[in-house]
Design a protein around this nucleic acid. Structure first.
Lengths: 222, 222
DNA sequence: TATTTTTACATTGAATACAATATACAAATA
DNA sequence: TATTTGTATATTGTATTCAATGTAAAAATA
């Protein structure tokens, strides 16, 4: 007799947590918005107890800010913080890329090889939104293959990759595909040819250059 | 009239959270122990509502494991996970060391210079416990000076440094001060002389060698 | 009118109460 | 006796209730 996995029952607070999280990431809840417990609990059709737990979790992830006896507010991310996130991505995804080159299975490497296929013809017009999505999937997958549980849970918990593609202060990509396409291919190539040091370096440079572009734009707009 | 800071009131759940966390880190609660909400709430003299919130936070930090409808259990950390933690420390503290060399103030650098002073006479007998504490303080301080908010909160939240000094499977240090003392001085030197790349490299190597020693011991004890 | 004080109301934080599920032990069956 | 089934109890997850605090608007004062 096969036993059903206990982790399949999800508690209410986890469902609310996920729902609120995606509402924040999709900008249905905007930075500065106050989260009225009463109203949200009513909307979701639950009591304030599991909702409170969900809010505390979101606070820990820095998605919302709690002020005692005042309430919870959706956080705003400054450009400076986003630059810091990129600085972290450099080392974290660098590690993931290195490990992917060492530990990635043949099947995983095949999948890595398949990214950006539809954009390889540089003479065609590139759909920027589509490229951005592919970009995000690519970085997520490398992180997944890189495979340290702890690394993955940090990246997921703090929405480190997600935030890089949902910037408050700008639309679209930080750099044009013309610029980043080659870097992506270099990363893929290094992983496929099992060169861990090179994979780490290429990944780090790729993200460093994006960070530097962000920092430049930052200076200009002051 | 000066208003008192709102953040000074701490909520009850935060106090319980801190108390439980230190009990786990100090091994008053041991891996595998079940956390009975009723009993703990009674012991602390609070209701189960804030306790539940505290438990959820600890779950997010992976200090305890929640099984729905069954309860919360103190987690056990395998040697493999500790090795992974060191792998993360390599890149995270490497970044911190690099940034410390760039952004550290004169005062901060003076303090960094003062670490390990009492152990510099290698002919004297070294108190291993004392050295271990100094070691931990040193790594914490570099991380603090390195200064990205997000980096710090990751390191604190996941108890990344703390765990490295509280190993389930062994007592005391991974390597003898004879071995690590020189590495520590090299890191300090690189930061004081404002060599970011060197500081990062020295820090990464220092942690990599400890990780490799752990991995070796791991093989032996199988 | 501008500023302070009072008061009513809204909202949060925590305790209690209740329902759903899991555990443990006894009874029943093969 | 070993295994299954049923039942009592313990424990968790959620809703409800209550008290403390914050907010905002009206009344009182200068």
């Amino acid at each position: 007799m096969m036993k059903k996995l206990g982790s399949l029952h999800e508690n209410l607070d986890f469902k609310i947590y996920q729902e609120l999280k995606s509402m924040i990431l999709e900008r249905k809840l905007k930075p500065g918005d106050k989260l009225y417990q009463d109203r949200i609990a009513r909307d979701f059709g639950v009591s304030r107890t599991p909702l409170m737990c969900a809010l505390k979790k979101l606070e820990q992830e820095k998605l919302i800010q709690a002020i005692p006896r005042r309430g919870f507010f959706v956080r705003k991310f400054s450009k400076e913080e986003i630059i810091h996130i990129f600085e972290l991505r450099e080392v974290l995804e660098g590690l993931a890329a290195r490990r992917a080159a060492i530990h990635g299975t043949t099947v995983q490497l095949q999948k890595i090889k398949s990214f950006f296929k539809q954009f390889k013809n540089l003479y065609e017009e590139i759909d920027v939104k589509q490229y951005s999505d592919e970009d995000q999937s690519f970085h997520n997958y490398i992180t997944q293959v890189g495979g340290l549980d702890l690394l993955q849970s940090i990246v997921r918990n703090y929405n480190i990759i997600t935030f890089s593609y949902r910037l408050d202060f700008m639309e679209g990509l930080i750099r044009h595909p013309r610029e980043t396409m080659g870097e992506h291919l270099a990363i893929i190539d290094a992983i496929l040819s099992r060169q861990p040091e090179k994979a780490e370096e290429e990944m780090r440079n790729h993200l460093k250059w994006s960070r530097q572009r962000l920092a430049e734009d930052d200076k200009k707009t002051r």
